[in-house]
Amino acid sequence: MARKFRGGVGASAALGFAASMVLMALPTASAAAPKYPTRPIEIIVPYAAGGGVDQTARALAPILQQELKVPVIVSDIPGAGSITGTSVASDSVADGYTLFFDSPGIIDAPWIERGVPFGPQSFKYVGQITYIPNYLAVSVTSPFKTLKQLVAYGRKHPNKLKAPFTAGWPSTDVMGAEFAFDAHLKFTTVSGFTGGPAELLSAIAGRTSFSYNNTGEVLSDVRAGKVRLLATSAPTRSPVFPNIPTFEQQGFPVAVGVWQGLAAPAKTPQYVMNVLDKALAEAAKSPELKKNFAKIGITVDYLNSPETTKLIYSEYKSDGALFKKLGVAK
């Protein structure tokens, strides 16, 4: 034991020595804000390569690189919904060289899963860069032509409609739950889906009554005339489908979409945040970003740091309230 203890002291002494060497090597002028950035910046995406969030981050990275004049590298750390990557990011050194690409996963997981070591307070938000609306979709062979018909049928026949569910509460399913709650509908839940495309396929085949999807997932099938959209969860109609009314316009206050943006660990110093704020604001104006985003079917919806922070905290509260009402909060 004593030995171990001595080892510990030795290690920390060695560390202290190393640290002082590093400090001596640094320029002593600490009055002015240090120069940032001077080396490559890593953006952690807590989802798999090729997923929606990863695609946005990769479309943004080259533009940020032009603004910041250092390489910007996207690293995917998927696993456990988005908990693994988010934990790594919230725990990383707050020096501005490890950033995080945030999406609703960070505010939903803390409500639902046990042992989640982060919350919205674990990050400082540079800003939102895109907002992807969700939709309620039915097969073209479905008898429901409008949301009104679906609600009327659902109220008359409780548990007759079959709703899809994907484990881990993706924002599409949060939208579905919010809608069911606001419209006082009872569905039979068919769970075990692997995500939006599987939900959509099941609706097309008529095994479930409808599905919850985002823009990219429904685009091809809507154009091929296989799928009809009944409502969108965006605050306003989407430019991609201008004739699809919002939930709000049809009397249900459902506004659950996927916002994505840049964040940094909570302890990141202000001078770093200032540089990043400016870089993201400039990137958002770039026509090249608009082109990159259009290619993957999303739009540039920039919000600055205070706006984004406000939005994230208010959604954190409202989602928490929903999960408590549904009885799924931990």
Partner: peptide, 27 residues
Amino acid sequence: LGIPGSVDTVIIIAALTLHGLQPGPTL
């Protein structure tokens, strides 16, 4: 259908969507 059967097909679908091609009937 845009339905991946394995990790590998997920990546191939991703490569399509990254380039603005949506898998599905219209492809």
